[in-house]
């Protein structure tokens, strides 16, 4: 089983990431689940979301405490003392950053995929939405989900112009992600 923890802010679409990711993985015949951190969510507040996938049914109904991958939508969280809590050895970090992150931010992080998802969102959708570009970058960096699976499920979440714009975001996130291994 792989476990993923998303760090973002309310309104950035972190919760939608785990919904779309779970749907894409299930489309590939895997078992997957996703859920958000709880509380009185509001825009701008730090939020967590969690995802799991496996080749067999997933019984855990808890938050993710030992992630194999962190998805950081807001680079400001790099300085957060709790960002890397519980992270497993040989983990991956996918991050939305203006410039590719070249520094090993934690000893357990062996792979970092960077993408300027905010720029992609602004250019394709016209607002600073980042989640679909981050999904593309996640697929490229980890190889855990196919680009085509992500594109196939977008239609369940977007329609019309938004569907086309977000399709471009996923594709550009995939194409523009830069990886560094440690």
């Amino acid at each position: 089983m792989k476990e993923i923890r998303i760090h973002g802010r309310g309104g950035q679409g972190g919760v939608m990431i785990v919904r779309m990711l779970a749907a894409a993985l299930v489309l590939e015949g895997k078992w997957a689940s996703g859920f958000p951190s709880f509380g009185m969510e509001r825009r701008g507040a730090p939020i967590l979301a969690f995802a799991r996938f496996d080749d067999k049914p997933i019984w855990e109904k808890t938050r993710v405490y030992n992630p194999d991958c962190l998805v950081v939508i807001d680079a400001g969280f790099i300085s957060s003392p709790t960002l890397f809590d519980g992270i497993r050895p040989e983990s991956t970090l996918v991050i939305n950053a203006l410039e590719p992150v070249k520094k090993q931010l934690h000893k357990n992080i062996r792979l970092i995929g960077s993408v300027d998802a905010t720029k992609i969102g602004l250019e394709e959708v016209g607002i600073a939405v980042t989640n679909t570009a981050m999904l593309g970058a996640f697929a490229r960096t980890t190889g855990w989900v196919q680009l085509n699976s992500l594109l196939s499920v977008l239609g369940d979440y977007f329609a019309g112009d938004k569907l086309e714009q977000n399709r471009k975001c996923v594709e550009r996130g995939f194409k523009e992600a830069e990886s560094v291994r440690f």
Binding site: A22, A23, W31, A32, S33, G34, F35, K61
Partner: peptide, 12 residues
């Protein structure tokens, strides 16, 4: 069913 732990959990 449990609020959040199931109400907001996405699964097949």
């Amino acid at each position: 069913y449990d609020g959040w732990f199931l109400s907001h959990l996405w699964e097949p």
